[in-house]
Design a protein around this nucleic acid. Structure first.
Lengths: 120, 120
DNA sequence: GCTTGGTTACAGAATAGTGCGTAATTTACA
DNA sequence: TGTAAATTACGCACTATTCTGTAACCAAGC
């Protein structure tokens, strides 16, 4: 995904949420504040670099808030902003859609021609 | 995005919807059946190869139905399946979220949570 | 010298775009 | 009347672009 300036809110949203990590991070941040290292432990397959990049992207989108505490060793907290928390149920709805439509998606039923709702 | 087998419905959904085109195609297919060439005209910046790949991905996910009419010149129709149509309002909700939270995301207010320290 | 959060440099993987080929029928035109 | 050209929805091979991972390095206090 390139940085394409679009005025379409759906495109903008997808630009931020696309990829494996954004929704996963949303998920782990639901419970509350997490540190960088905690998020790494939460899902061990994301690389150090990519986690930092993804978190920055979410921060710039206003979904995640970054709080750096002064002093060493470094300590940085991440949590969801208000908009970020509002986003969570929408993501959950997508997951629910996937689950509840599984049979229909796999069996690929005749799908009512024009507008005749034949089922479901 | 690699092909990662996951049982998480959110990950599965994002695997299908990630990228610039899936949601756009959903958008253009809302109105009804479209031919390949129409979808290309709808958004001229997608290459024919990618459009074909994206449509196939959506078809395999059970979101889009492909109907090839025999004969030449070739004629292929695409439309949304039942699950595909159910997905549309969820995508719209994401767009609405983006729009309605714009101020909050950009101004980054103190985020009414417990941690009331160093707010930017 | 360990810690934590982050950045940079480089390499390798994945993804996207370009142009050519194809099929069978219709149309174009000399 | 014969033939060349256009049409549609791709597949394929090749190239260009972008993304991701790995490893090294930094900061400063303990």
């Amino acid at each position: 995904m390139k940085d394409v300036v679009s005025r379409c809110p759906i495109e903008e949203t997808m630009r931020v949420l696309s990829g494996r990590w954004p929704t996963l991070l949303l998920y782990y941040l639901q419970d509350g504040t997490k540190r960088f290292s905690e998020l790494r432990r939460d899902n061990p397959t994301v690389s150090h670099r990519i986690l930092a990049l993804e978190l920055r992207k979410l921060e710039e989108a206003g979904i995640v808030r970054r709080t750096a505490h002064p002093g060493y060793p470094l300590r940085v907290d991440y949590d969801l902003t208000g908009p970020g928390r509002k986003l969570v149920p929408l993501i959950d709805a997508l997951g629910a859609w996937w689950e509840h439509t599984e049979d229909d998606r796999i069996n690929r039923p005749p799908t009512s021609e024009a507008n005749l709702d034949t089922a479901a």
